[in-house]
Simulated scan of single mutants.
Amino acid sequence: MPGRPRAADYGLLATLALLWGSSYLFTDLALDGFTAVQVTAGRIVVGALALLAYGAVHQRRADPRPQASVGDLQASVGDLVMLLLAGLTGAVLPFALLAWAQEAVTSSMTAILIATVPLWTMALARLMARDEPVDAGRLAGALLGLVGVAVLMGGAGVDAPPTPRALAVLGAALCYALTGLILRRVDHLPAPVSAAGLQVFAALAILPVGAVDLWRQGAVGGTLAVTSIAVLGLFASGLAPIVMVRLLNRTGATFVSFNNLLVPVVGTLLGIALLGETVGPRQAVGLGLVLLSVAATRRGA
């Protein structure tokens, strides 16, 4: 059962925010030489290989249990189904949505919109896990978050993202929230097993699609684009799932969702410093409203 966060858990939370916050920068760089599908497939496959190598080095294998009963076998199949679902909702769908969105949306705007993950987590946890009480304060925080999203997306302006692309980012946020709750169903598995299973299933699903896209579209990726995919795979898709699953097992989905208070800050600062992006009034106000809403909905945790 998840327990109270300890000092080390806050360090892991900051590490997770850095890994994911920087992923929008590297996605933007990778898109200079590859299509959205190719970036998605590349980072997932590299991440899966990295996690398999990690598991092999540390020799963390599940107990074969030759005397397992039928009930145990059914539980094992159920675990595989959960990991397959987590691979789709935690890697394939959100990575594809984010890569497609970042063809027209800045990395900083993407990071800000992703900060809505805790709002989705609160809503889904109430429906699926029924262990997240929703009081007036949290409801007000959720409504404030919706206002923040409306500010970011509404109207016309130089810093307003294209609506379909912005909706794709929100769809990715919903996928991430759902993944956290799915992984709670397999929290009895070691963190490396869950993380590797998620990425391997995701790789099996996306590899044929990526191969076909590469054959049809080709690629003009230079050294920087290739390196960016490698970094995404090794760190954002390889190391980050291990940290996330370990945190989920130790602290629960609510605490892990706090990384989204840090991710938009990391993503925005990196976009400004390394990509020359600017933060306009719309983004500043929207970011403030979203972060306030997340703080309000998480205040009791």
Rank of each mutant, 00 (worst) to 15 (best):
M1T: 11
R4L: 13
A7H: 05
G11M: 05
L13F: 03
T15E: 02
L18K: 01
S23V: 06
F26I: 07
L31C: 11
F34L: 12
G42C: 05
R43L: 10
R60L: 04
R65V: 06
Q67W: 04
S69M: 03
G71W: 01
G71F: 01
Q74E: 00
S76D: 00
M82L: 02
L85D: 02
L88G: 04
T89F: 15
A91D: 06
A91W: 05
P94I: 11
A104N: 07
S107E: 08
I112C: 02
L113C: 02
T121E: 04
A129D: 01
A129Y: 03
A129G: 01
D131M: 01
V134H: 00
A142Y: 06
G148N: 04
M153A: 13
G157D: 10
A160P: 03
P161E: 14
P162V: 13
T163W: 15
L167P: 06
V169Y: 13
L170I: 10
G171E: 13
A172Y: 11
C175S: 10
G180W: 06
G180S: 08
G180K: 04
I182V: 14
D187L: 01
A191V: 00
V193G: 00
A196K: 00
L198C: 00
A202I: 00
P208T: 03
R216I: 14
G218P: 06
A219G: 12
V220Y: 12
V220T: 15
A225M: 09
S228V: 06
A236Q: 05
G238V: 02
A240M: 04
M244Q: 14
V245T: 09
R246Q: 05
L248Q: 04
N249K: 13
F255W: 02
S257A: 14
N259Y: 11
N259S: 13
L261C: 06
T268L: 13
I272E: 05
L275F: 11
G280M: 12
R282I: 10
Q283I: 08
A284T: 07
L287E: 10
L287N: 12
V290A: 11
A295R: 09
A295I: 09
T297Y: 10
T297V: 15
A301I: 13
A301P: 05
